[in-house]
Nucleic acid binder design. Structure first.
Length: 592
RNA sequence: GGGGGUGUAGCUCAGUUGGUUAGAGCGAUCGCCUGUCACGCGAUAGGUCGAGGGUUCGAGUCCCUUCACUCCCGCCA
């Protein structure tokens, strides 16, 4: 028999009554009655109530032990009388009378209580992460994470994918995020970069003829953190397939995600075949390329109406003349909402930096009630109703601005209004594909044309007939998955044709030599017989967040860094010895 | 780089209009308690009010600077 335990702390039941057992674990809680002591022993699996009274020679010593001390107990399983059964724990029908015990791991006074529902500052949680991780909620989140990853691995194997590792020390690439760099000792003055994603490697795996690849891949990007974005590192389910079209990727990923979300959450998936929304439509109808489809509100463009003579809303009309658009959100049957409901939203919009949201409610006989209602004729209202599907009793919120700004404010307003009207069902998952991303976009500041997403994406249409004169009209086989307004992954069918790649890079301002230099491995490989291929990379951390119903990525990450990319437990990053710097041929020049 | 929030005992927090000796719960220590499961009761210890400067007869409270944590913008396959 194992010298530490015969059972774990979630194992003993009525059928064990009478047997002598060994349990090991942490002292979760003591209830000391002076001559009788209840002690909850906890391990990864659960809690068992143990009991000792002053008749036992160990009583005094045990009574004094700190919570979170690790002990081993020798004892006997006994029945609990009906009125003392604890239905909250699975071992609640029995308890263990302690006959003997030893301390396996002493515990100092705790910097934070482990057994408590209190919330603690991130700082203390991260510094003592090993204590924090003992707590129920986060302990379960991390176990969930393990199970989800294991399930996904298994599914991918069943789908016929092969798992490969790709290098962690690789080369810096010019596109995308800031790289983490590692100085090379053997190559003075040169640096490795940690991969932002195994993008080029997975394509090279396809060129190597492996057909279907996946990896639970660590990705490193030196960018600032957000609640849903770890600084430094995160994980993707990276996958790539050869001889596929967009549809083939969609099929695999939809099946994988549906299986995973069904297995690990009780929430309903609204549409198991994910609806597809073009990038253009997403920006128009939702104001965002990551629409939350749980929210039924739709944004409509009603700019036309503001060119009518019988509309006298001059502020908007003037703006429209100078190139602004008007977009609106219709709320159904809100005629009886109090004035404060409307004013709140208007005030909120002004707070968000918009000029406010104009609104009116459509009344019987087709007239508009509200501060700006008088500016609209019956006919103009009928036009708006036809365009937006609004009915009598509905209200219309309008914003007028230049396109980018308008998308931003209408998107925020869509969220805000839905929240105020309680329209979002929190018990569902609403997935969608966002498709038809533009290949290029114009940088507002520099006025230069840049790749809008991945430079290795394949443009849509007949390759021979592509119009390189109008790059901004070019669409790519580039797609994102969005769930409940959270961007889960993005992927693309790749461009496997070197000549085409040179042309596209030329549009983004890279000449052939630059492409050859920066992407030598890739471009070379593609010229030795490359299969058409494509893939995608769902974010593991965000999938777990959705499944665990957490808003912060640190709640599903075992040892996260704080917002300033510091590990408070391990003291990383840290200074290094002069000797190490010397070996790496580095000198420090720190700005003050 | 910019904006918001927070910072008071080991932990979670309260602290009124600027006014006497800065409080509570949990935890710790000590004592009492044989059926609790957030056990109960009593006592004790524990404070650079994040730091620095200023205004004031007087600052936890007002002002300035600064630091830490966090949320957001920028940034981000």
């Amino acid at each position: 028999m194992n010298k530490y335990r015969s059972h774990n702390c979630n194992e003993l039941r009525k059928k064990n009554v009478g047997s002598s057992i060994l349990l090991s674990g942490w002292i979760n809680k003591k209830r000391d009655h002076g001559n009788l002591l209840f002690l909850d022993l906890r391990d990864n699996y659960g809690i068992t109530q143990c009991i000792i009274d002053k008749g036992n020679k160990n009583f005094k010593e045990l009574e004094k032990l700190q919570l979170e001390t690790v002990i081993k107990i020798e004892g006997k399983v006994v029945d609990r009388s009906t009125d003392t059964i604890n239905k909250e724990i699975e071992t609640g029908e029995i308890e263990v009378t302690i006959e003997n015990f030893i301390v396996l791991g002493k515990c100092k006074e705790l910097p934070m209580p482990v057994f408590s529902d209190q919330e603690y500052s991130e700082e203390i949680r991260l510094k003592y992460r090993y204590l924090d991780l003992r707590r129920k909620k986060i302990h379960e989140n991390i176990i969930l994470r393990s199970k989800v990853i294991s399930f996904i691995r298994n599914e991918m194997n069943n789908f016929g994918f092969l798992e490969f590792q790709t290098p962690i020390l690789t080369s810096s690439s010019p596109e995308g995020a800031r790289d983490f760099l590692v100085p090379s000792r053997l190559n003075p003055g040169k640096f490795y970069a940690l991969p932002q994603a195994p993008q080029q490697f997975k394509q090279l795996i396809m060129v190597s003829g492996f057909d279907k690849y996946f990896q639970i891949a660590p990705c490193f990007r030196d960018e600032d953190a957000r609640a849903d974005r770890s600084p430094g590192e995160f994980y993707q389910l990276d996958l790539e397939m050869s001889f596929v079209e967009q549809e083939d990727i969609f099929k695999v990923v939809e099946q994988l995600l549906v299986n995973t979300f069904k297995k690990f959450s009780k929430k309903k998936i609204i549409t198991e075949k994910f609806p597809r929304i073009t990038y253009r439509d997403a920006l128009l109808k939702y104001g965002s390329d990551k629409p939350d489809l749980r929210n039924p509100l739709i944004i409509e463009d009603i700019t036309e109406t503001f060119t009518r003579k019988d509309v006298s809303f001059d502020i908007f009309k003037k703006l429209v003349k100078s190139g602004s658009n008007v977009r609106c959100i219709v709320t159904k049957n809100t005629k009886d909402k109090p004035r404060s409901f409307f004013d709140n939203i208007d005030r909120w919009a002004k707070n968000e930096g918009a000029s406010g949201l104009a609104y009116f409610t459509i009344e019987n006989g087709i007239s508009a009630k509200g501060p700006v209602g008088k500016f609209f004729s019956k006919e103009s209202l009928e036009e708006i109703m036809k365009k937006t599907g609004a009915k009598v009793g509905d209200s219309i919120f309008m914003a007028c601005s230049k396109k980018k700004d308008l998308e931003r404010i209408t998107s925020l307003a869509r969220d805000k209004i839905a929240k105020d009207l309680n329209l979002i069902d929190d018990n569902v998952f609403a997935f969608c594909w966002v498709v038809d991303y533009p290949m290029f976009e114009k940088n507002d500041q520099t006025n230069k044309i840049e790749f809008s997403h991945n430079p290795f994406s394949m443009p849509q249409g007949d390759i021979k007939k592509l119009n390189f004169e109008k790059p901004l009209d070019m669409l790519a086989y580039q797609y994102d998955i969005v769930c409940n307004g959270i961007e889960l992954s993005s992927g693309a069918i790749r461009n496997h044709i070197p000549e085409l790649m040179y042309k596209l890079f030329a549009i983004a301002g890279y000449d052939k030599d630059q492409v050859d230099e920066k992407f030598s491995g890739m471009i070379n490989a593609l010229s030795y017989g490359a299969p058409p291929h494509g893939g995608i990379a769902p974010g593991i951390d965000r999938i777990i967040m959705l499944l665990a119903n957490e808003k912060n990525i640190r709640e599903v990450t075992m040892f996260p860094m704080n917002q300033n990319a510091q590990d408070l437990m391990m003291n990383a990053p840290s200074s290094i010895d002069e000797k190490q710097l010397k070996e790496l041929n580095l000198t420090l020049k720190i700005k003050k």
